[in-house]
Simulated assay, not measured.
Amino acid sequence: MSKKILVTDAKIENDELLLNTDLETEMTRLSATGQMLVDSDQFSFIYIVDHEEGYQYVTIPEAAWGAIQRGLQAGHEAFLTNAGGKLKLESFRGEMEYLIENITGNSNYGEEMVTKVEQVFTAPSA
């Protein structure tokens, strides 16, 4: 069974996009897969990481999207972080851009998911 890792906070620090989690596992025990999914029922993006016990899903809820948008615009690398370290999320930017493009205007993701993604990621900057 796959475990879920919840992103509890996202911020930009030292030109890096940091996705923080309460996960107690050492980051060195995880490896980035460069693959992402969408959970439109929970309004989340999912980044897949590999662990010796199988895949784990990093759940990125809507509360983190604003920081992610700023990080994408600035071209920052993304990292999953906890008290014990950080893991570079390979291909995060490309995967996010691909998903955002596919979700925009696509009712297959559900009207509410489309609206939320468009408001955060495709709205003109003020």
Rank of each mutant, 00 (worst) to 15 (best):
Lys88Val: 04
Glu97Trp: 03
Lys3His: 12
Ala123Arg: 09
Gln73Lys: 15
His76Asp: 04
Pro61His: 11
Glu95Leu: 07
Thr33Trp: 03
Val7Asp: 02
Leu17Met: 05
Thr115Val: 09
Thr33Gln: 02
Thr28Pro: 02
Ile68Tyr: 02
Ile60His: 06
Phe92Trp: 02
Glu101Gly: 11
Glu95Cys: 12
Arg70Val: 07
Glu112Cys: 05
Val38Lys: 02
Glu90Asn: 11
Leu89Pro: 01
Glu101Thr: 12
Thr8Asp: 05
Ile5Glu: 07
Tyr47Pro: 08
Gln35Trp: 04
Thr104His: 15
Arg29Asn: 11
Lys11Trp: 01
Ile68His: 01
Ser40Gly: 06
Met36His: 08
Ser125Met: 12
Pro124Thr: 06
Ser2Thr: 12
Gly34Arg: 04
Leu72Arg: 03
Ala78Asn: 00
Thr59Tyr: 14
Asn82Ser: 12
Asn106Tyr: 08
Glu112Ser: 15
Tyr55Trp: 06
Asp22His: 12
Lys116Gln: 14
Asn20Gly: 07
Glu101Phe: 08
Asn14Lys: 14
Tyr109Pro: 09
Glu52Gln: 07
Ser125Trp: 11
Thr104Lys: 15
Lys88Pro: 03
Asn20His: 10
Ser91Gln: 14
Gly75Glu: 04
Leu6Phe: 13
Thr21Tyr: 08
Phe43Asn: 11
Pro61Gln: 12
Ile5Ser: 03
Asn20Met: 11
Val38Asp: 09
Leu89Trp: 02
Met113Pro: 11
Leu99Ala: 08
Val117Ser: 04
Glu26Ser: 15
Met36Gln: 05
Thr104Pro: 00
Phe45Ile: 05
Ala74Gln: 13
Asn106Thr: 06
Glu26Ala: 14
Asp22Phe: 12
Gln56Tyr: 09
Thr33Cys: 02
Lys11Met: 12
Gln119Gly: 01
Glu13Leu: 10
Leu30Phe: 14
Thr59Asp: 14
Ser31Cys: 04
Leu6Cys: 05
Gly84Ile: 09
Glu97Ala: 02
Gly75Gln: 05
Ser2Glu: 11
Val38Ile: 15
Ala64Glu: 07
Thr28Ala: 14
Phe121Gly: 01
Phe92Ser: 02
Ala10Ile: 01
Asn82Gly: 10
Gln69Val: 06
Tyr57Ala: 10
Tyr55Ile: 01
Ile68Gly: 02
Lys4Tyr: 13
Met1Glu: 09
Thr104Arg: 14
Val114Glu: 08
Val7Leu: 07
Ile68Met: 04
Glu52Lys: 08
Ala10Met: 06
Leu23Gln: 09
Thr28Asp: 15
Met1His: 12
Ala63Met: 10
Leu72Val: 01
Ala63Val: 09
Val7Gln: 03
Ser107Gln: 15
Ile46Gln: 13
Glu16Ser: 06
Pro124Val: 10
Tyr98Ile: 02
Ser125His: 11
Lys116Gly: 00
Phe45Leu: 13
Thr122Ala: 09
Asn20Glu: 13
Arg70Ala: 13
Gly85Cys: 09
Met1Ala: 12
Leu23Tyr: 08
Ser44Leu: 00
Lys4Cys: 11
Leu18Pro: 00
Met96Asn: 03
Thr104Asp: 13
Thr33His: 03
Thr33Ser: 10
Met1Ile: 11
Gly110Trp: 06
Pro61Val: 04
Gln35Thr: 09
His51Gln: 06
Glu53Gly: 05
Phe121Trp: 10
Leu80Ser: 01
Glu53Ile: 05
Ala74Thr: 04
Leu23Asp: 14
Asn14His: 09
Thr115Pro: 01
Leu37Phe: 11
Val7Gly: 00
Asn14Glu: 14
Glu26Thr: 12
Leu37Thr: 06
Phe43Lys: 15
Glu90Thr: 10
